[in-house]
Design a protein around this nucleic acid. Structure first.
Lengths: 210, 210
DNA sequence: CCTACCGATCGGTAGG
DNA sequence: CCTACCGATCGGTAGG
């Protein structure tokens, strides 16, 4: 029934636990589709064609999978944010690119971002503060950018804090409806959301003639 | 232990089931705080100081509470949207007021909106399509407004669809951080988000001199 | 409103 | 990777 025979030629492989990625990948899809609490270890195992207890040869606990997904996702978002901001010195361009990176993230890693945004309640013990710290750092990055552009006269908002919340959240929302085979291309969506962010803070539209 | 004695003077009351609202109210708080699936009927009962089976004297099922919360919330949002749009003929003003109503909703009914946005996965059977129909109608309202303002030259966006998603989602996000005792007043937040929406679609800032 | 209890399902372990 | 199984917990019912 789809199980590999013991008698194979790959015995000499280095064999790091590539099976963990399979478990994580399957869990990720199910967590995104029906939620962490509604996904049982038996569901994940069934999807992989094995029995639930066998999962524990690759994974310490269900919670560990969730934490791993969230940590990876937040770290990637932080990396991409820093790269976007580091790629130019124009503060409007920085906010535009950071927003684009944010939206690109929710599209390219749709399941990860959905889980990260919806399953904070499901984090146990120390995991919630660990993730929240990363989320706060990310949000602070956007707020500081807006705070920098206001006295310079590039942006014009009453509260950079509120503006940063609005921009981040509108980007997160993309994950709820975006489909790869939908009517909008990734590049289109990314660009328009970048424009939304700049309009929102009162910056002039970007020049796209080059 | 806090239980009412049988021997009371209220035997002649009309006695519609006021107890149902208590159950719903308690469930609502718990659903918003820790999620539907993580809230047991025993949790709700404990909060009310009774035993879990007693809940079934007031409620048909756990699912029924969730559906009731979502239906009420969506119907209220639709009502307020129509009222906002009906209160003026200026399309920019309509979008501003509709956005303000949307944000006001997420602030005044924070738990309801959180549950409505986060627990779609938890709806069983016919309940999901019923709620989705209402959500679609609501979203369509915003999109049509933006579509109307574009040829008129009042708004300027590439895709009214995307703009409506962005506006709705940025408003939903307010529920995640808003606290009544926080640094921003309800009126401030509502007004600024209304401004965000109008900026986002390229409309000039509203005149507030009157 | 209660006690007593049902069958189902959960995450995880023992031991191979 | 498996079978066998644990204690805990779930939504809900019976019957008063």
């Amino acid at each position: 029934m789809g199980r590999r025979s013991r008698i194979t030629a790959d015995a000499g492989q280095p064999r790091t636990d590539g099976r963990y990625s399979d478990v994580r990948e399957t869990a990720l899809t199910l967590f995104a589709e029906r939620g962490y609490r509604s996904t049982s270890m038996r569901d994940i195992a069934a999807e992989l064609g094995i029995q639930a207890p066998s999962l524990y040869n690759h994974v310490k606990s269900k919670q560990e999978i969730l934490r791993d997904i969230m940590v990876t996702t937040m770290d990637r978002a932080l990396t991409d944010f820093r790269e976007a901001v580091g790629s130019t010195h124009d503060v409007a361009e920085q906010l535009g690119r950071a927003t684009e990176a944010h939206v690109r993230q929710t599209m390219r890693h749709r399941r990860e971002v959905l889980v990260s945004n919806n399953e904070l309640q499901s984090l146990d013990g120390d995991n919630l503060p660990i993730i929240m710290a990363k989320r706060d750092e990310y949000g602070r990055g956007f707020r500081k950018l807006i705070e920098r552009g206001c006295p310079a006269g590039v942006f014009n908002v009453e509260s950079p804090q509120l503006a940063s919340y609005a921009i981040l959240e509108m980007g997160n929302g993309v994950g709820a409806w975006y489909r790869e085979d939908g009517p909008f291309s990734e590049a289109d969506i990314v660009r328009q959301y970048g424009d939304f962010a700049l309009s929102l803070v009162g910056a002039p539209p970007r020049d796209r003639s080059s």
